[in-house]
Nucleic acid binder design. Structure first.
Lengths: 116, 116
DNA sequence: TCCATATATATGTTTTTCCATATACTAACT
DNA sequence: AGTTAGTATATGGAAAAACATATATATGGA
């Protein structure tokens, strides 16, 4: 993981919020991030694609939804950077977490990967 | 410290090298960073000014030289991010550190801040 | 005046965003 | 099974915005 490429990924409002939310929640799909950030679908999708191509996120499809999580191959130092940021600036995504919970029953249900 | 502003500062090759070098060495002046990075004076100076304006670096003048160090007001999480990066990607600045030592006796001498 | 550093302007490049459209999957109906 | 409609996500292309760099010039201290 090239540190410049990594930090360029964190240096955008949309991407950093997505990353910290995914880190806090474990796994999120595009429509959940749209709701949490109140941003358009292409915008969210574009940034997630960039994060995936850089090796920061990995995705899995479950039916119509695509769920994103932190890539298991992410170097330890990069994971620590994300954890440190979330711990030190937890208020940064507070509003987004609130807006995520407001989805209520509209949030897609996760099925375990064993029997999807 | 706004995390987006912070990460934008790290998301540039020149700035990240300067930051990690300063962190590794404690304190460096413009001409030392010019030698370590083999970059022009205005380029180095401009990036250092940005890092200072963002509150990541602080400077002190000693004679003709201006020394930069990490700002004492830097939030803990931001300092930890820098430390984690340096520890995890120490080879990133290896060549720059080598080029810095090649300055030899041309490196400006530090006098303690008490009697500058 | 000389040296180290800072800044202004202009320019070229990268990044971000928007709109439209394409793909992938599901459900319902026949 | 095949067709149609609906939902979720991805992507191509163009316009706009942000960023980095080079050259020239200014400042400030010895």
């Amino acid at each position: 993981m090239n540190p410049i490429q990594f930090y360029k990924c964190l240096a955008d409002d949309t991407r950093l919020r997505c990353l910290l939310l995914i880190q806090a929640e474990g796994e999120l799909c595009v429509c959940e991030l749209m709701a949490a950030l109140k941003e358009s679908q292409p915008k969210i999708s574009r940034h997630l694609a960039q994060l995936r191509q850089c090796g920061i996120l990995s995705d899995r499809r479950q039916g119509q939804w695509v769920f994103y999580r932190l890539a298991p191959t992410l170097p330890t130092w990069a994971l620590e950077v994300l954890q440190t940021t979330l711990a030190g600036e937890s208020t940064f995504i507070a509003k987004n977490q609130c807006q995520l919970t407001q989805m209520g029953e509209d949030r897609p249900k996760r099925t375990q990967s064993c029997c999807s």
